[in-house]
Write a protein that binds this DNA or RNA. Structure first.
Lengths: 223, 223
DNA sequence: TGTCGAATGCTCTAACCAGAATATATCGCG
DNA sequence: CGCGATATATTCTGGTTAGAGCATTCGACA
């Protein structure tokens, strides 16, 4: 009986129906209008199945089916009492308890040493440029929202996105610098085992392991 | 024929097999040992199906099936040439191009005004405490890694996680303060429409819309 | 008046994936 | 030496989801 809470789109649906009854297509359009599709992954396929699942669990209910002109018939849903409780509960949980996320970039950094150091630096420099573009775009849309007079409270999530973006930009900028000038600890080692690679880029793994072990020895016995 | 690249676990598998042939269980253990399960979502069910899918697409191949003692038989995989190309390509893409992510907390912030302001502030304060705990834990495991002598290069992803964590902590701390003392623009409005709510917490949505519209008017005509 | 393309609204399907379930072996402990 | 706990290794299952596909209507334009 317990619903899974895995898809935040369900939260968005509940939050919208908490305001007033809607049919699914209207929900998607409202989310778009308010720019919430930037903070909640929205796609049509998921939307309809999420609504179905909420209905099955009694958190929303079909309020009416109507037909406007000769358009396809559509079902208007409303939130139930249980749904109202659930949305407050879920939202509270999300605010109170940080969730472990797995950003793609973090995964990529995990395997950074697989690439030759110079390639890695070149790619990260390109990332910096791309991040700066995104930052400009975000700032632009925030300014626009403020210009319409919408209180910033209703766009906090974008401010948050901006904060993360800035943090990433600072991090990558610093990383690129230190990888580039070799002051990041381990770059020498990294460079060495990629220099020993064959012409096809293949690396002798035994050599890598030995190099890492040697490094560790030297650090441990060091000062 | 083009593979989807949706699951970073496949990247991890390729990266491991790029080092040396392994069987799935060994992959999972290696990822754990190296702490990469903090940056790539790892679970057994997915692992086996991801490996199957990679095999189907010719990026990895069964190298042998062996049996040690009377343990269940296991299949050792190796990376193919196409797989080597794919891992470099995929990794390069991830480093170069920022991906749009949808953190749960961002979704939650999107619907913040649904909760009564005082509740929201209380919950966010609890989040600050939780974030500080996580920060301490992360710092601990980083110190530990350095203590073994492992070059920081091999744990960059955790440094990144730390940077994001710090950014979130700063953001939430600031947010809580400004929501608490009412200096965040829109809080007055928020407080007003929650004060008008019935005893069951139900809110008159028409009143909200009117209030927001009025606010917008006042801002636009204002200085 | 015919038609082209955009907008409206929903459905279908194949892949994906999380979590549970299964099965055996080994180890420590009284 | 028998018991449960832990480690090894994989398979199963069923819900979830992304993305494409379908069907209709309407406005614009020629």
């Amino acid at each position: 009986m317990a619903r899974s809470r895995s898809n935040p789109l369900a939260l968005a649906v509940l939050a919208l129906l908490w305001e007033r009854p809607m049919h699914p297509y209207e929900m998607s359009m409202t989310l778009r209008e308010r720019g919430k599709d930037e903070s909640v992954r929205l796609n049509f396929g998921s939307l309809y199945s999420v609504v179905d699942s909420l209905e099955k669990h009694g958190l929303v209910a079909a309020a009416s089916t109507e037909r406007e002109g000769n358009r396809p018939q559509r079902t208007v849903y409303r939130i139930t009492d249980e749904g109202s409780r659930e949305v407050v509960d879920w939202l509270s949980d999300l605010l109170r308890t940080p969730t472990k996320e797995f950003p793609q970039f973090e995964a990529a950094l995990s395997f950074l040493p697989l690439l030759p150091p110079d390639d890695a630096v070149r790619l990260l420099r390109l990332r910096v440029v791309a991040l700066e573009r995104r930052q400009a775009a975000l700032r632009g849309s925030l300014d626009e929202a403020v210009a319409t007079g919408l209180p910033p409270l209703f766009t906090v999530e974008s401010e948050f996105e901006g904060a993360l973006l800035r943090a990433e930009l600072d991090f990558v900028t610093d990383l690129v610098t230190r990888l580039g000038d070799g002051t990041y600890p381990g770059v020498d080692l990294w460079r060495r085992f990629h220099a020993d690679a064959g012409p096809d880029g293949r690396i002798d793994q035994t050599a890598v392991e030995e190099a890492v072990t040697a490094y560790i020895q030297s650090v441990r016995s060091g000062p």
